[in-house]
Nucleic acid binder design. Structure first.
Length: 909
DNA sequence: CATCGGACGTA
DNA sequence: CGTACGTCCGATGC
């Protein structure tokens, strides 16, 4: 291909065949407009309210096309506003089109930015429509032997279709594209592509406001065009055509002729573009990150980066660094490490993380010089293994690693202990961006280093820390690449942590608690399998009973687990009053069913509710039984980087949502028992920690007094609000106060309070006013916390853990108010999380210091569960009380209650 | 086969 | 129109 062959150069000059070329030509306006209507605008907007649905749909379509079609050249043509040669010819052209909505027009410049970042040429020409530009390029490329894909929602482009040219025409939305080949056009319209404009001229095109011949549809038009061999001959023979249609044609001949003039696409538009200009070039990565960050297109960015061929990877690639993997002579590891004493080294382990003991097959270590060593654990010499083990277990050896918890589990499978972690890049990323969902190492490399990991390295499967690259069976090379990335990330992440005031949180809280979590996950909690099995059959029978009762009540069977079928039964068959609306109908949740039951007393409802409860309990027990490990214990995974407020969460199985409220559910706790060799389970929980934090943060004298008085909190607050003696606070009053106190920490409104307590809006409002009158400090605090967060951009906990809430300044009321409730709750929930974490660290270290055999097993937000070694009950009870109470210095005391027993149920209180 | 929404368990 | 989670299931769309 020559360097400069202008598109408008005479096509008769020597034509180089470029039959390897495949062009993707897109009508930008038409596809963006389709995307705008295909995707609901309310679901696509940046946090500051900029709509992005058209940008998203267009970009998504573009990425898919590039991925699936692998074009060698890509180009986007735009319409310009203003008159075109067609409107000059026919003033009403496209006259029926309403002006595009403001929300759409604002997105076109954003699409330009995306195309700029992707280095995709795009162009609009005054007075010319996008399809004419596309037709010109198509014509030229076709003559040079190239294959062309034209993506447009305008049917006029069908005239371009040939053996080499396919039009991709959106069927619905922008992802479902019909491939209009010559055969497809002929089949659909009964004429070959080059005659499609003939047909359109007769039939008319509503979207262009071109009227056709009344009474002539595609069938008649195709018949004429075929019979008379083209529109010219149809026109010439108009007098010979009989019938109503012929008559109609004769009266509309002028319109038909003009239609044909207008719908023919230009093929000789002058542009300065050459085919070479359209050839794909590597994207501008920096710009892509900037633009996609600004548009908040995380998933799309991942899809884009994933699709790019490796040869587009930046020259300065982690892969290159990883290639400097040093082959150490057997026995040399100890020396290599000794030479690097004092350096913080990057670590990565290829292996599998299992809480009870995983497996590791390769270890890689990266140093300050950008080189790394990889150790194959299957073939490693004893001397090297010893050196490795000593280094890993040395608390003084500084190690940076991504996901130290999983790494510890993998290493433990080989009997190795990980001790000296000075930075976990996963935790660091979480502290810096607590609202993100995932923190893949590859993403961090992109974000902080502007680099990509070699492909395959970051595609870790479930529970797998690494997978081997091609020709890298033991995973050492992949691990080396990751170790280098981790090592390089240490500095920028530390800087970021410091700038966010999170350095101490990392060093004093998250890293130490991580070590505690490793022990808790490894320990697990003993399960009484026969008990669970018995419970399972019992719940199973209850499910059966309730189902039969429900079927009997309505005279037929129904899937009780299907909200859709339930709606049919309740609201159609039984004609019950409608409940609250959901997106898909009317709710059938427990509250609504209980309400319906109260009103109708229909036996179906009672059985349905009983079925719901029983099936859920059975499910819970089944799940627990499935997760009992060979050691007879259940090892949950505590997620340390999931909850935006700083809490832990528990998965696989979730041991933080084991039932406690209902008597039946509570029985499940009896299956969590003390393990062999231990004396019992001890539970310790903070009472009313969130309200205590509220008292502390608000410095409200009344609330602080409440906690110092020793009086029951809600009774005390109730006596103030209702202006009665504490003894005169009725249980109804107390319940209202309790609901309100806790609701305040969640951003509860008077409306919400009235609904929850089933009282009038007026009464709820009065209750809140009275509350705030007596506890003005609370009100001041709550308004202050939102104001401050709006100004700063984030909320803070007592340990400085931030939550970023950009939506506080959103124009969208719903988003803004949601952010305000988050701002109210985050400091309270987050401070509680901080305190419990500090307590866990204190308990663990004190148990260790005193060389006790008791151990921490679970954390349930404000509760700790320990397994107590024989003879340690008293000491551990004291120790736990002390450590938990001392975890924070608040203006109110932290009250801890402790229980002890053989099962979690017995230990509860 | 993957994803979404409803429902519901915990704090 | 009260926060934070995880899990299950049926329905839906690829």
């Amino acid at each position: 291909m020559s360097d400069h062959d202008d598109l408008d150069a005479p096509a008769t000059t020597s034509i180089d065949l470029i039959d390897e070329a495949k062009l993707l030509l897109i009508d930008g306006h038409s596809m963006a407009y389709r995307a705008f209507f295909a995707l609901p605008v309310e679901n696509f907007a940046t946090t500051d309210g900029q709509p992005t649905n058209a940008v998203y749909g267009f970009t998504s379509m573009l990425i898919n096309l590039i991925r699936d079609e692998k074009p060698t050249h890509v180009f986007v043509a735009w319409d310009r506003s203003g008159p075109t040669f067609r409107t000059e010819q026919y003033a009403a052209y496209k006259g029926t089109r309403s002006a595009s909505p403001e929300e759409f027009r604002g997105q076109v410049p954003l699409i330009h930015e995306v195309l700029g970042a992707l280095n995709i040429p795009h162009l609009g020409i005054d007075g010319i429509e996008a399809d004419d530009i596309l037709a010109t390029i198509t014509d030229h490329a076709e003559r040079r032997g190239a294959e062309v894909l034209v993506c447009s929602g305008d049917r006029d482009t069908f005239q371009l279709v040939s053996d080499q040219v396919t039009v991709l025409y959106p069927r619905k939305g922008v992802s479902d594209l019909a491939r209009m080949t010559p055969a497809a056009v002929s089949e659909k319209y009964g004429v070959p592509p080059q005659r499609y404009p003939d047909l359109a001229a007769l039939v008319g095109e509503t979207s262009d406001n071109l009227p056709g011949v009344p009474g002539v549809g595609p069938k008649t038009a195709a018949k004429w065009i075929t019979t008379y061999d083209g529109l010219d001959n149809v026109v010439a023979s108009a007098d010979a055509i009989t019938g109503k249609a012929g008559e109609s044609l004769r009266t509309h001949l002028a319109q038909v002729i003009m239609n044909r003039q207008i719908n023919g696409l230009l093929r000789d538009v002058e542009t300065a573009l050459t085919l070479d200009d359209l050839a794909r070039v590597p994207i501008d990565r920096e710009a892509v990150h900037q633009v996609f960050d600004a548009l908040q297109f995380r998933v799309l960015r991942d899809r884009l980066l994933q699709m790019l061929p490796e040869d587009e990877a930046a020259a300065e690639d982690v892969e290159d660094l990883a290639l400097t993997v040093t082959d150490l002579a057997p026995g040399a590891l100890g020396g290599w490490l000794a030479e690097r004493a004092g350096q913080e080294l990057g670590l990565d382990v290829a292996g599998k993380a299992v809480q009870g003991g995983g497996d590791a097959w390769a270890v890689a270590i990266a140093d300050d010089g950008g080189t790394s060593v990889a150790i194959d654990l299957a073939t490693v010499e004893n001397a090297d293994l010893d050196a490795l083990g000593a280094w890993l277990a040395d608390p003084a050896a500084a190690i940076a690693v991504h996901d130290a918890k999983a790494t510890s589990h993998a290493l433990s499978g080989r009997g190795l202990t990980l001790a000296g972690v000075t930075l976990d890049t996963l935790l660091a990323a979480y502290l810096c961006h607590p609202d993100q969902r995932t923190y893949d190492l590859g993403d961090l490399a992109v974000r902080y280093l502007q680099r990509e990991l070699p492909s395959g390295v970051d595609a870790a499967a479930d529970g797998m820390l690494d997978i081997g690259l091609d020709g890298d069976p033991f995973g050492g090379r992949a691990a080396a690449a990751r170790a280098v990335a981790v090592h390089e990330l240490a500095e920028p992440l530390r800087t970021d942590l410091a700038s966010r005031g999170a350095t101490a949180l990392m060093g004093q809280v998250e890293l130490p608690v991580l070590a505690t979590l490793v022990g808790m996950e490894r320990a697990g909690i003993a399960a009484d399998v026969p008990y669970f099995s018995g419970l399972e059959s019992e719940f199973d029978a209850a499910v059966e009973r309730a189902a039969l009762g429900a079927y009997e009540a309505i005279g037929h069977e129904v899937n009780l687990g299907s909200p859709k079928q339930l709606q049919e039964v309740l609201f159609v068959e039984l004609d019950m009053p409608k409940t609250r609306k959901t997106k898909t109908g009317w709710t059938t949740d427990a509250d609504a069913l209980a309400d319906l039951f109260a009103r109708t007393e229909h036996p179906f409802l009672g059985n349905l509710l009983a079925h719901r409860e029983a099936i859920r309990l059975r499910q819970t027990v089944e799940g627990l039984l499935k997760s009992v490990a060979p050691d007879g214990r259940i090892h949950t995974t505590f997620q340390q980087t999931v909850a935006a407020t700083g809490r832990l969460s528990s998965t696989d199985p979730n041991l933080q949502n084991i039932p406690i409220r209902t008597a039946e559910g509570y029985r499940i706790r009896e299956g969590f028992v003390v393990g062999e060799g231990y004396e019992g389970l001890l539970t310790a929980d903070y009472s009313q920690i969130e309200m205590r934090i509220m008292a502390h943060l608000s410095s409200d004298e009344g609330l602080i007094d409440a906690f110092q008085s020793g009086e029951d909190l809600h009774r005390y607050v109730g006596s103030r609000v209702f202006r009665v003696e504490p003894a005169e606070v009725t249980s109804a009053m107390r319940a209202k106060i309790k609901a309100m106190s806790y609701g305040l920490a969640y951003g509860l409104s008077a409306f919400g309070l009235s609904k929850q307590l089933s009282i009038s809006a007026g009464e709820a409002k009065g209750l809140m006013d009275d509350y705030f009158e007596r506890f003005g400090g609370v009100r001041d605090y709550l308004t202050g916390v939102v104001d401050e967060a709006r100004g700063e951009g984030w909320t803070s906990t007592i340990l400085g853990r931030r939550r970023y809430l950009p939506d506080l300044t959103s124009d969208n009321r719903q988003r803004r108010e949601m952010a305000e409730r988050m701002a109210l709750n985050a400091p309270i929930q987050g401070s509680a999380a901080d305190i419990v974490k500090v307590a866990m660290i204190g308990v663990t270290s004190e148990l260790e210091r005193r060389d006790l055999g008791s151990r921490l097993l679970l954390q349930v937000h404000d509760e700790l569960v320990l397994e107590v070694a024989p003879g340690e009950r008293e000491e551990v009870t004291e120790l736990v009380r002390e450590q938990m109470a001392a975890a924070a210095d608040l203006e109110v005391p932290l009250d801890v209650s402790v229980g002890f027993g053989r099962s979690w149920r017995d230990a509860g209180h």
